[in-house]
Design a binder for these strands. Structure first.
Length: 265
DNA sequence: TATAGTGTTATCGG
DNA sequence: ACCGATAACACTAT
């Protein structure tokens, strides 16, 4: 399930395989995924156009076209699949890899059909992805992969909300999901429940460095599943640093795992 | 069989 | 205004 690194991979697949192909048809029949549009609205806007560029900020993607901008969000279970008329497929996903057979389009929730017969599909079993025209990208904070130290400090400090909740707010920093957040807090040795207005300068510094390091390593190694802490977020999990049994609780409405010895309130 | 979940958004209540 | 909790979405994994 996608966080920033997985979305970047999907974006690169679109860039590599879908740009410059004339759009001959659009399946926008799913009113939930395509909200707030009505069925046929995206179709009418894109037929005869082509994608000219693929962008990403945080977990949001958008494509420039010769017409309106096409926004794509993968939600929790979405991925991009490019299916070509010769039967070949480019699978732009990770989590469902090996669990979805080539040619299984049961959960295709949106699709572009190109004039050459190829298709770009949003395959999304849980239907939490979204496709819309002219998405409000400006509401997102700076991308977690490139955010500056100053912007990071502004985003994380202040307020009474737990720091974990802040890391997850896409309008402050775009791209950190539940797993990345736990990894960052663990790397930085910061308790997830620390309120923003109590975070110290050294803590912010460690969080910033951990954010950059975790995002970079997940981008390099193929996704958030490769992060150190992830395998230890489980009932019998132990801290990879000191062997202490991991604790879990809820912050910002999400299940959170941390090391009670390393990460002290 | 029951429950939780790597995301987002809206709404309600404190 | 800020924050937490809850629901909704529909399916998979444990």
């Amino acid at each position: 399930m996608p966080e920033l690194p997985e979305v970047e991979f999907a974006r690169s697949v679109i860039e590599r395989a879908a740009l410059g192909r004339e759009i001959a048809d659009v399946d926008d029949a799913d009113p939930y995924v395509c909200r707030p549009h009505h069925p046929g609205e995206i179709r009418a806007a894109l037929i005869g156009r082509e994608l000219t560029a693929a962008h990403r900020r945080g977990k949001s993607m958008w494509c420039d076209t010769s017409g309106p901008v096409l926004g794509i969000h993968l939600g929790m279970s979405g991925k991009i699949v490019i299916a070509d008329p010769d039967g070949s497929e480019i699978d732009g996903g990770d989590y469902w890899e090996g669990r979805r057979k080539t040619g299984d389009y049961r959960w295709a929730r949106f699709g572009l059909t190109f004039a050459d017969g190829g298709r770009l599909l949003l395959v999304d079993p849980r239907r939490l992805g979204r496709v819309r025209l002219d998405p409000p990208v400006e509401k997102l904070g700076p991308d977690a992969a490139t955010i500056t130290a100053d912007a990071f400090t502004r985003a994380v400090t202040g307020g009474s909300a737990p720091v974990k909740a802040r890391l997850l707010e896409q309008h402050r920093i775009a791209g950190i999901g539940n797993l990345l957040a736990d990894e960052i807090l663990w790397q930085a040795r910061v308790h997830p429940g620390r309120p923003g207005d109590e975070i110290t300068e050294p803590e912010v510094k460690r969080l910033f460095r951990a954010t950059r390091a975790a995002v970079r390593s997940a981008l390099r190694d193929g996704g958030v599943h490769t992060l150190t802490l992830i395998a230890h977020r489980r009932p019998d999990g132990r801290c990879p640093r000191d062997g202490t049994p991991m604790t879990h609780g809820t912050f910002g409405g999400r299940t959170t795992w941390w090391c009670p010895r390393d990460q002290v309130r």
